[in-house]
Design a binder for these strands. Structure first.
Lengths: 197, 197
DNA sequence: ATATGACTAAAATACGATATTAGTCTATTA
DNA sequence: TAATAGACTAATATCGTATTTTAGTCATAT
């Protein structure tokens, strides 16, 4: 029992340490020895939990997306009306990511360049998963008669796509601009979608 | 007279040649000697028209955006109703770019990586210029009472922003997917904006 | 059963020598 | 005499090789 508890725990500790080192030094300059020292375990231990350096780093990214998805789920189940929920969800998917990479001041480009192919592959999956959550609310809105009847899955993907250029995938937070500007832009896209032109 | 005509002409010939070489070999591997040979002039001649290699390459990009802008202008002045015009303009800004970088099968990433800072700076200006054209149609639609009254400039920027993730800025055409899929996605975003959810 | 860290093969870095290339500039041409 | 050419140069990139660093493994310890 205790074993499992520790095991779960150490995984997150490794990801926390990796997040710190990646934001400070970038992907290339974070060594597995650094990481082990930062976590406070031996190097071999990391390999008991992750397949390798790339896998650790991708898991850091996955965890951020998981946080975004949890936030989306929470909003999608709140008791606001569907339109308001979608609007907040659009903002949330942008801002959770923004806030989670804020401390990567310089070294995000390095990380993205190094893992580009693997990251691209995951991106498609991440967007798909987020679109699913949007689709639930869309369906509900259509059933309630407050949304135009339209292909739910396609519409969900369009909502995701329309906010993608605000994600810190290739634009660092520095390049994206101030937090409040980013939030305002996401909100504006949400407003337009809800009311139409 | 003839001098000026030739001058204008050679500029475009240089950009044509650069476009060919860049798409075939990428930024690093295109040498100014190659370029001169491809154009059929001496190297010094190129420097009479462009400040340098980077400037030539950025001008290739600028020319593509100019084409997109011309297309936007044309659509904005067509005799369709404002909503239809905006929809076509959203699709056009994506597709003109898509079609103009289609032949860059592998070497787009190289080019983008090499000129990233300069390219980022221009992007902001390009988007601004496109937004201006959108704003004209938006204003017209609002005056005619077919659009909700809203901040025109902000709305125009939101329209541009929402289609930006379909542009081949960091995603190559290969990564973006099939032409018809890209067009369908742009159209869907346009539809959503026009009618609302 | 889990964790460790010395170990190894592979990859990155350093460096001096060589080759290539961007950009210049004077001679040439139309 | 204005536009073009291409030889020239300083700067940058590439190469070959020696050296160092690092990702990932595995026999041993807890």
């Amino acid at each position: 029992m205790r074993t499992i508890a520790v095991r779960e725990d150490i995984r997150d500790l490794i990801l926390d340490a990796a997040d710190r080192l990646l934001s400070r030094y970038g992907y290339q300059k974070m060594t597995m020895d650094d990481l082990a020292r930062e976590v406070g375990v031996a190097k071999g231990t990391i390999y008991l939990h992750f397949a390798g350096k790339e896998e650790v780093t991708l898991s850091v990214v996955d965890r951020i997306v998981e946080r975004a998805k949890r936030e989306l789920e929470a909003i999608s189940k709140s008791d606001r009306e569907p339109a308001a929920r979608l609007r907040l969800m659009l903002i949330a998917r942008v801002m959770v990511r923004f806030d989670n990479v804020r401390h990567y001041t310089e070294n995000l480009g390095d990380l993205l360049a190094a893992l580009r192919p693997a990251l691209l592959a995951r991106r498609a999956r991440h967007f798909e998963e987020e679109a699913r959550i949007f689709a639930v609310v869309l369906r509900e809105g259509q059933r309630a008669g407050v949304f135009v009847r339209r292909d739910v899955s396609a519409t969900a993907h369009a909502l995701v796509l329309a906010t993608n250029s605000l994600l810190p995938f290739n634009l660092s937070t520095r390049e994206l601009g101030e937090r409040e500007d980013v939030e305002r832009q996401a909100a504006r896209i949400g407003d337009l979608f809800i009311d139409g032109l």
